[in-house]
Design a protein around this nucleic acid. Sequence first.
DNA 1: GTCTAAGCGAGACGGTACGTCAGGTCTTGCT
DNA 2: AGCAAGACCTGACGTACCGTCTCGCTTAGAC
Lengths: 190, 190, 190, 190
Amino acid sequence: MNKESTGGRPISAQASAALKEAALRLVRAKGYNKVSIAVIAKEAGVARQTLYNRWNTKADLVLDALFEEAQNYAAAPSLNDTRDSRVLLEEFLTNVFHHLTDNGDMMRALIAAAQIDRAFHDTFYAKFVLPRDRMITDLLRLAQTRGEFSSDRNAELVSGFIHGAFWYRLLNRKALNADFARAIISEFFD
Amino acid sequence: MNKESTGGRPISAQASAALKEAALRLVRAKGYNKVSIAVIAKEAGVARQTLYNRWNTKADLVLDALFEEAQNYAAAPSLNDTRDSRVLLEEFLTNVFHHLTDNGDMMRALIAAAQIDRAFHDTFYAKFVLPRDRMITDLLRLAQTRGEFSSDRNAELVSGFIHGAFWYRLLNRKALNADFARAIISEFFD
Amino acid sequence: MNKESTGGRPISAQASAALKEAALRLVRAKGYNKVSIAVIAKEAGVARQTLYNRWNTKADLVLDALFEEAQNYAAAPSLNDTRDSRVLLEEFLTNVFHHLTDNGDMMRALIAAAQIDRAFHDTFYAKFVLPRDRMITDLLRLAQTRGEFSSDRNAELVSGFIHGAFWYRLLNRKALNADFARAIISEFFD
Amino acid sequence: MNKESTGGRPISAQASAALKEAALRLVRAKGYNKVSIAVIAKEAGVARQTLYNRWNTKADLVLDALFEEAQNYAAAPSLNDTRDSRVLLEEFLTNVFHHLTDNGDMMRALIAAAQIDRAFHDTFYAKFVLPRDRMITDLLRLAQTRGEFSSDRNAELVSGFIHGAFWYRLLNRKALNADFARAIISEFFD
DNA sequence: GTCTAAGCGAGACGGTACGTCAGGTCTTGCT
DNA sequence: AGCAAGACCTGACGTACCGTCTCGCTTAGAC
């Protein structure tokens, strides 16, 4: 259901793109909370008000930028892949861990922002957390149909356990590496 | 090595207590980030500088206050308790979940603060996270000596999994209740 | 000299009228500087740019609107009126004071705008102040030909004194009433 | 009646002085409404909030600065001066006109600000307009006791007329010179 | 008993960032 | 070519905190 446009200047896709690009670049360079909204706008060569026209907070902008960037990655494991589920999960986790290692500060900042701002929490959960949670749930269910993961287990619950496992390490600034991915596999794939 | 006192007015224990009390009360009433340092000081009837004399940040103060309050609870499961380890762990988790249910916003705020401020992260981890992590590690090791938990398992790792499980739910604002405690037990025991 | 029309959509007289009407109404209702250009345009159901096509500033628009409205009043004293000049002037001043009492805020705002914006000052002076100044000058000169006002006096100067007298009261938010009109008469008609 | 100080860092006279000096200098150099609060504060080397601690608006600050500066002038005509009242008034008006010629833009801006902001109007009237009005009223009353000004005249009213006369010229950007001072004298004396 | 060092309440100070608002300019499609 | 709609840039505004500082006062051990 599109908004019925009855005229008016169209919003500038260029401005949005410049803002997202600047936001990610600055946040990666200086750290999330060392970057102000004003600086992002100035760096993007865009008026501050234009930023407020699209996003309510810095977190909204960064989440949006990160989300868009993530679209370019083959994020979800393919459910048509015939390799063993353990392999698929390990591959997926390894990918995620690479991403988290590169963007750890940003992810921690976004999770922090979600704790502070209820409205942002809801967006963050719906757009970021839940979809990723579902990817593992779906993978586990696939594994169950294949007989590689016990049908007695609650896939949703286990997906939460898996996410919790690496969130806990992320938030406590512990390394997320291939070893840990394997540890998770051998814990939950009995 | 004590600081050599060569005179001067002693610090007021009353001021510290009033600050901690006010901090917890206000944070519980209005939410962590709706309370400013200035308001806590004013509510405690104390000068702002007096607060800075003791703590560097609001998070430090609140952590300290919360930590002190927690001392009054029998936090750690007794290792002399002869009941089944499953029961001990379930009891412990249920206690923790009660506490988290009452102080969820504050705990989320502290975890958020730890993501934003590296110095606070270190204090928070050392004074809060690690000790609690150890309680479960120790309990699991006890269970191993009793033969109630497989000696092949890495107690430290599993403790991290358990904490991750409820951190993930805490941070995503899901309920933490007795059912979830039991789900954890049956996931990780056997 | 009419603008040579080379085709295109004609100017909408309706839009201009709606803008003037909305401007006066809103300024009277909410006060001059509580009303923005955007609000006037929206209230008139007109695009903001359309307003800019005709007037440069809010002050220009309001002045124009006020000026037009004033056309409907028999503003200047008739020079064919055979009554005593004192009576004519008193009647004129009383009329002016009524108008100023009703539109005091707007007039003060216009005078203020003229102090702030040089270009507006010139328009305001030429279209509003000077014509009204001349009305009294002319009246005084008539009185001189009739022998009701000393021919030695400088009519232009005295007109300035008279206007100054009520501007000073207007700008200092003092009442402008019939008593004051009489006081002026007896001061300057010796 | 001093404010009862109950402790706290004393306000910095230096900061206030720097702000007033910067305000007058910038306003004289660039014009009242081309100077923002932020620029004044920056030019004074003072935090913006410090300015807000003392004055509510730019107009308040500038009025204060101008008022203070005026203290250094022998503003009011001495009532012990035995010269003819006409001479005293002429001298006073000439002084005022010099001041207004130098600070015309600022004075027009302050009068404009008083029309826009009711709170500022009251301050401006009480601290600036009324005292100056009284100076002439007092002078006229002195002239009455000396028999140099008819006792039948209402000194207060005439003072208003005199002020109105030069306000009107000031606000319409006409020259205020010695000739006009003399014209006023000869209008209202005898 | 003075001296001295430090804690304390109070509150001003220099800063940074925020979100809002108004004014003017532009771009689009419609009339 | 005027118009409605509305996004855009600019720049000022007032507020909220932050952490530091400067007072005058008080506390209590040292001399």
